[in-house]
Amino acid sequence: MHISVNGEQHEFNEVEVSISRLLEIRQVESPEMVAVQINGEFVEMQNYPNTYLKSGDDIEFLYFMGGGSQ
């Protein structure tokens, strides 16, 4: 399976990769600081375990970034 994560190409041998699994594989330390979209569509956090990726999917991890004033 071939997917793109934040513009980088990934090849997976595993047949079933969920968003939860992908967050592990990518070693995202605080998943609550990331918003996930697949092919431009927002994915609810409670759906991460049962949302499986398809070959050709375009995944974006959007990081929450505060900062600015202080």
Binding site: L62, Y63, F64, M65, G66, G67, G68
Partner: peptide, 10 residues
């Protein structure tokens, strides 16, 4: 909207 952290911005 703007945000920054460490070496990153959005």
């Amino acid at each position: 909207h703007g945000g920054i952290l460490r070496f990153n911005g959005q």
